[in-house]
Simulated scan of single mutants.
Amino acid sequence: MKKEDCFYLGKIVSKYSFKGELLAKLDTDEPDLYDNLDAIFIDLRGNLVPFFVESSQLHKSDLLRLKFEDVDTEADADALIKTELYLPLDLLPKLEGDKFYFHEVIGFTIKDTNFGEVGILQSINDTTAQSLFEIDRDGIEILIPMNDEFIVKVDRKNKTIEVNTPEGLIDLYLEE
Protein backbone atom coordinates (compact mmCIF):
# COMPACT_ATOMS: atom_id res chain seq x y z
CA MET A 1 0.00 0.00 0.00
CA LYS A 2 1.41 3.39 -1.01
CA LYS A 3 0.84 6.60 0.94
CA GLU A 4 -0.81 8.28 -2.07
CA ASP A 5 -3.48 5.52 -2.00
CA CYS A 6 -4.26 6.34 1.64
CA PHE A 7 -5.48 9.16 3.81
CA TYR A 8 -4.01 10.36 7.11
CA LEU A 9 -6.22 9.20 9.96
CA GLY A 10 -4.27 10.41 12.97
CA LYS A 11 -1.31 9.84 15.23
CA ILE A 12 -0.59 7.56 18.17
CA VAL A 13 -0.08 9.90 21.12
CA SER A 14 0.38 7.70 24.18
CA LYS A 15 0.18 4.30 25.83
CA TYR A 16 -3.06 3.47 27.57
CA SER A 17 -2.29 0.39 29.64
CA PHE A 18 0.46 -2.06 30.52
CA LYS A 19 -0.93 -4.52 27.98
CA GLY A 20 0.16 -2.72 24.83
CA GLU A 21 -2.92 -0.56 24.34
CA LEU A 22 -2.44 2.81 22.70
CA LEU A 23 -4.34 6.07 22.34
CA ALA A 24 -4.53 7.70 18.90
CA LYS A 25 -5.63 11.27 18.21
CA LEU A 26 -7.81 11.15 15.11
CA ASP A 27 -7.80 13.89 12.49
CA THR A 28 -11.54 13.78 11.80
CA ASP A 29 -14.79 15.51 12.70
CA GLU A 30 -16.50 12.12 12.99
CA PRO A 31 -14.31 9.79 15.07
CA ASP A 32 -17.15 7.29 15.56
CA LEU A 33 -16.82 6.32 11.86
CA TYR A 34 -13.48 4.68 12.70
CA ASP A 35 -14.48 2.77 15.83
CA ASN A 36 -14.66 -0.71 14.29
CA LEU A 37 -11.62 -1.03 12.06
CA ASP A 38 -10.07 -4.39 11.20
CA ALA A 39 -6.66 -3.02 10.28
CA ILE A 40 -4.74 0.25 10.15
CA PHE A 41 -1.57 1.13 8.28
CA ILE A 42 1.18 2.60 10.44
CA ASP A 43 4.01 4.64 8.95
CA LEU A 44 7.20 2.99 10.21
CA ARG A 45 10.28 4.77 8.85
CA GLY A 46 8.53 5.69 5.61
CA ASN A 47 6.86 2.32 4.99
CA LEU A 48 3.17 1.67 5.56
CA VAL A 49 2.87 -1.49 7.64
CA PRO A 50 -0.54 -3.08 8.29
CA PHE A 51 -1.45 -3.70 11.93
CA PHE A 52 -4.51 -5.78 12.75
CA VAL A 53 -6.86 -4.30 15.33
CA GLU A 54 -7.80 -6.66 18.14
CA SER A 55 -10.11 -4.10 19.75
CA SER A 56 -10.82 -0.39 19.57
CA GLN A 57 -13.13 2.04 21.26
CA LEU A 58 -13.55 5.78 21.43
CA HIS A 59 -11.92 7.28 24.48
CA LYS A 60 -13.10 10.76 25.39
CA SER A 61 -14.03 12.82 22.33
CA ASP A 62 -11.35 12.51 19.68
CA LEU A 63 -9.12 9.74 20.98
CA LEU A 64 -9.33 6.15 19.83
CA ARG A 65 -8.15 3.45 22.23
CA LEU A 66 -6.48 0.72 20.17
CA LYS A 67 -5.25 -2.77 20.89
CA PHE A 68 -3.26 -4.27 18.03
CA GLU A 69 -2.56 -7.97 17.54
CA ASP A 70 1.02 -8.83 18.59
CA VAL A 71 1.49 -5.55 20.52
CA ASP A 72 1.33 -6.97 24.03
CA THR A 73 3.90 -5.12 26.12
CA GLU A 74 4.80 -1.57 27.08
CA ALA A 75 7.97 -1.88 24.98
CA ASP A 76 5.96 -2.91 21.90
CA ALA A 77 3.64 0.05 22.49
CA ASP A 78 6.54 2.48 23.10
CA ALA A 79 7.89 1.68 19.63
CA LEU A 80 4.64 2.96 18.07
CA ILE A 81 4.26 6.25 19.94
CA LYS A 82 4.18 9.30 17.61
CA THR A 83 3.70 7.12 14.52
CA GLU A 84 1.11 8.17 11.96
CA LEU A 85 -1.98 6.14 11.07
CA TYR A 86 -3.34 5.73 7.54
CA LEU A 87 -6.31 4.04 5.89
CA PRO A 88 -7.00 3.27 2.21
CA LEU A 89 -8.81 6.09 0.36
CA ASP A 90 -11.76 3.83 -0.41
CA LEU A 91 -12.62 3.84 3.32
CA LEU A 92 -13.24 7.60 3.28
CA PRO A 93 -16.95 8.32 3.65
CA LYS A 94 -18.34 9.92 0.47
CA LEU A 95 -19.02 13.62 0.85
CA GLU A 96 -21.84 15.31 -0.98
CA GLY A 97 -22.92 18.81 -1.84
CA ASP A 98 -20.36 21.51 -1.17
CA LYS A 99 -18.27 19.47 1.27
CA PHE A 100 -15.08 17.93 -0.12
CA TYR A 101 -11.79 16.35 0.81
CA PHE A 102 -8.77 18.41 -0.15
CA HIS A 103 -7.24 15.65 -2.29
CA GLU A 104 -10.37 15.18 -4.41
CA VAL A 105 -10.58 18.77 -5.74
CA ILE A 106 -6.96 19.25 -6.86
CA GLY A 107 -7.07 19.94 -10.60
CA PHE A 108 -10.59 21.40 -10.47
CA THR A 109 -11.23 24.67 -12.32
CA ILE A 110 -12.07 27.59 -10.03
CA LYS A 111 -14.70 30.00 -11.36
CA ASP A 112 -15.68 33.24 -9.68
CA THR A 113 -19.25 34.52 -9.96
CA ASN A 114 -18.10 38.03 -10.97
CA PHE A 115 -14.62 37.46 -12.41
CA GLY A 116 -15.23 34.31 -14.46
CA GLU A 117 -12.67 31.50 -14.80
CA VAL A 118 -9.85 32.06 -12.32
CA GLY A 119 -7.60 29.05 -12.99
CA ILE A 120 -6.75 25.50 -11.93
CA LEU A 121 -6.59 24.48 -8.26
CA GLN A 122 -3.00 23.34 -7.67
CA SER A 123 -3.14 22.68 -3.93
CA ILE A 124 -4.70 23.69 -0.65
CA ASN A 125 -2.57 25.38 1.96
CA ASP A 126 -3.88 24.46 5.39
CA THR A 127 -0.84 25.61 7.36
CA THR A 128 -2.22 29.13 7.74
CA ALA A 129 -4.94 30.32 10.14
CA GLN A 130 -7.41 29.97 7.27
CA SER A 131 -7.00 27.35 4.56
CA LEU A 132 -6.31 28.75 1.09
CA PHE A 133 -7.04 27.58 -2.43
CA GLU A 134 -3.73 27.87 -4.35
CA ILE A 135 -4.76 28.49 -7.95
CA ASP A 136 -2.57 28.64 -11.06
CA ARG A 137 -3.68 31.19 -13.67
CA ASP A 138 -1.20 30.95 -16.54
CA GLY A 139 1.78 30.89 -14.17
CA ILE A 140 0.40 33.45 -11.70
CA GLU A 141 -0.48 32.12 -8.25
CA ILE A 142 -3.81 33.33 -6.88
CA LEU A 143 -4.77 32.61 -3.28
CA ILE A 144 -8.43 32.51 -2.26
CA PRO A 145 -9.47 31.83 1.34
CA MET A 146 -11.44 28.59 1.68
CA ASN A 147 -14.29 30.34 3.37
CA ASP A 148 -17.74 28.68 3.43
CA GLU A 149 -19.24 32.06 2.54
CA PHE A 150 -17.10 32.22 -0.64
CA ILE A 151 -17.82 28.68 -1.89
CA VAL A 152 -21.00 28.76 -3.97
CA LYS A 153 -20.98 25.30 -5.54
CA VAL A 154 -18.78 22.22 -5.91
CA ASP A 155 -19.51 20.47 -9.22
CA ARG A 156 -17.76 17.09 -9.12
CA LYS A 157 -19.10 16.00 -12.50
CA ASN A 158 -17.61 19.00 -14.34
CA LYS A 159 -14.65 19.33 -11.94
CA THR A 160 -15.35 22.96 -11.07
CA ILE A 161 -15.73 24.95 -7.89
CA GLU A 162 -17.70 28.17 -8.10
CA VAL A 163 -16.68 30.87 -5.67
CA ASN A 164 -17.97 34.35 -4.97
CA THR A 165 -15.05 36.41 -3.67
CA PRO A 166 -15.03 40.02 -2.54
CA GLU A 167 -14.72 42.43 -5.44
CA GLY A 168 -11.11 43.15 -6.36
CA LEU A 169 -9.56 40.15 -4.53
CA ILE A 170 -8.54 38.30 -7.71
CA ASP A 171 -7.48 41.53 -9.44
CA LEU A 172 -4.90 42.14 -6.68
CA TYR A 173 -2.88 39.20 -8.05
CA LEU A 174 -3.16 40.30 -11.67
CA GLU A 175 -2.07 43.94 -11.36
CA GLU A 176 1.49 44.45 -12.48
Rank of each mutant, 00 (worst) to 15 (best):
L121M: 05
Y101T: 01
S56L: 04
L172E: 15
Y173E: 03
E30S: 13
K94I: 13
T113A: 07
P93E: 09
K153P: 08
I161D: 07
E30V: 14
D35Q: 15
L44V: 13
K2E: 08
G107S: 04
K157G: 07
K67C: 02
L44W: 08
D29H: 08
E104K: 09
P31H: 09
V49S: 10
Q57R: 15
R156H: 08
D136L: 01
E69V: 15
E176A: 10
N147G: 04
T109I: 14
M146R: 11
D138W: 02
P50A: 07
T127Q: 02
L23M: 02
A77M: 00
F18D: 12
S56V: 03
I140E: 07
R65A: 08
N147W: 09
L169M: 05
G139D: 02
F115G: 06
D138S: 10
I42E: 03
D27V: 13
A129R: 14
K157L: 15
T160S: 11
F102D: 10
S14M: 11
P31K: 06
R137S: 12
T160P: 04
L132H: 08
K19R: 14
V71I: 11
L89Y: 00
I151V: 15
Q57D: 12
L169D: 05
I12D: 01
Q122F: 08
Y34A: 07
V49F: 10
Y34G: 05
T83C: 02
I144R: 01
D112F: 05
D148Y: 13
G139A: 05
L37F: 06
G20F: 04
K67Y: 03
F133G: 01
K159S: 14
Y173H: 10
T160F: 03
F52Y: 12
K19P: 05
E69R: 15
D5G: 09
P50D: 09
R137V: 03
I161L: 10
K111I: 15
L9A: 04
D38C: 04
L143W: 11
N164G: 06
E141A: 15
L64S: 03
A79G: 10
K67L: 01
F150E: 02
E4W: 08
L44Q: 09
L169K: 05
D62C: 13
F52S: 11
I120S: 09
K67A: 03
M1V: 14
K82I: 13
E21A: 01
K25W: 12
K94N: 13
K19S: 15
A79H: 12
Y86V: 06
G20R: 00
P31S: 08
L64K: 00
L85F: 07
D155S: 06
L169S: 01
T160K: 13
G20C: 02
D126W: 10
V163N: 11
D112S: 01
K2Y: 05
E175I: 14
D5W: 06
D72W: 11
G46C: 08
N158H: 14
A79I: 14
F51M: 04
N164R: 08
E104M: 10
K157Q: 13
E149I: 15
I135S: 00
D136E: 04
D38V: 11
F51E: 00
L87E: 00
D72V: 14
